[in-house]
């Protein structure tokens, strides 16, 4: 094809050249539309979440929404304080990160500094499979395996609790943190490692004192993106953490998260533009803003703190 186009180009009458140029333009515009669709989706998210939730703030003041300590929009008298949902989200996310950050970082350091190529080849697919398990299956696992197991330890643990949901969510996030951190650690140049080994350091001393600080921006960005993932996770918490909105930081409690509330409402059949319908968009708006902030910090860390080696 390349050859035929060459002979065409040499002998091409002007009309053919014009057609060819038009064809190139057309393809480029088509591809541009594809790329622009991303921007369109972002705009659509903002517009839809904004317009569909704006009605709520005609009934409820923004102040009440953000500072109220009771959330019961579907009851009489209705209460619209989002803090209980935020509280549930923060508690489950904190438990998840308490699991995911130490385990994920340890695995990353182990794979990048200690493990042989053979071990890596076996461990990485296992982590990928762990990352690929559907969240609804994780939810099932949290409710029907982890909670009964924890009840052996804590007999008073309710059937729906934030602890089991958070722990399983943590395991779900481990592969994300470990693979991003490992990438950051492996991009630390060997010269730095050799400098440390030549000074008589052990593997652990090299990993902890040289590689970890050098890769820190990449590692911390993986933590932030992990937080964002935990905040947005839906199925595990809706299945295993319970659906009551209440302010509680006790992991042994059951409590609804922001995402669980959206699911709970969606399962019912709410008419378009009712108050209940508007609330899920308002909650969604807050959710997307929170994850957007975390993602922006995460990517900023990754890009602007490019390591100084």
């Amino acid at each position: 094809m390349a050859i035929s186009s060459l002979s065409e180009a040499i002998a091409a009458p002007p009309r053919k050249q014009v057609i060819r140029r038009l064809k190139e333009r057309f393809i480029e515009s088509l591809l541009f539309l594809c790329a622009f669709s991303c921007v369109a989706v972002t705009i659509a998210i903002m517009v839809i979440l904004g317009t569909e939730s704006i009605g709520l703030f005609k009934t409820v003041s923004v102040w009440e929404f953000f500072t109220g300590t009771e959330w019961a929009p579907l009851f009489e008298p209705a209460k619209y304080g989002i803090l209980p949902l935020v509280c549930g989200t923060l508690t489950t996310s904190a438990i998840a990160l308490f699991v995911a950050i130490p385990i994920g970082t340890t695995i990353a350091l182990f794979l990048s500094e200690f493990a042989s190529q053979k071990v890596r080849v076996w461990v990485k697919p296992i982590l990928e499979i762990l990352a690929g398990v559907p969240t609804v299956v994780y939810g099932y696992f949290a409710l029907l395996f982890v909670t009964p197991l924890l009840q052996l330890l804590f007999p008073d643990l309710p059937g729906f609790n934030m602890l089991a949901a958070g722990l399983v969510m943590g395991i779900m996030i481990v592969p994300q943190i470990s693979s991003m951190s490992e990438d950051a650690m492996r991009s630390v140049p060997d010269e730095l490692r050799e400098g440390s080994y030549a000074a008589g350091a052990t593997k652990l001393q090299t990993a902890w004192n040289v590689v970890f600080p050098a890769a820190f921006s990449g590692v911390s960005s993986s933590y932030i993106l992990g937080i964002s993932r935990a905040v947005g996770e839906t199925m595990i918490v809706s299945i295993a953490a319970g659906l009551q909105a209440k302010i509680s930081f006790n992991p042994m409690d059951s409590a609804a998260t922001m995402t669980a509330y959206i699911v709970q409402v969606s399962l019912g059949d709410l008419p378009h533009a009712s108050i209940g319908y508007q609330t899920i968009f308002a909650v969604g708006f807050l959710l997307v803003s929170m994850t957007l902030i975390f993602n922006t910090i995460g990517h900023w860390l990754k890009r602007h703190y490019r390591e100084q080696y």
Partner: peptide, 29 residues
């Protein structure tokens, strides 16, 4: 740069938010 930031941010949007978008846009609009 704008498109670049957009793609990375879209990858981090929680899946349920896409559901809300679809509910408002595809289903009702």
């Amino acid at each position: 740069a704008l498109i670049e930031i957009n793609v990375t941010n879209l990858a981090g949007v929680p899946s349920i938010v896409y559901g809300l978008l679809a509910l408002g846009l595809f289903k009702y609009y």
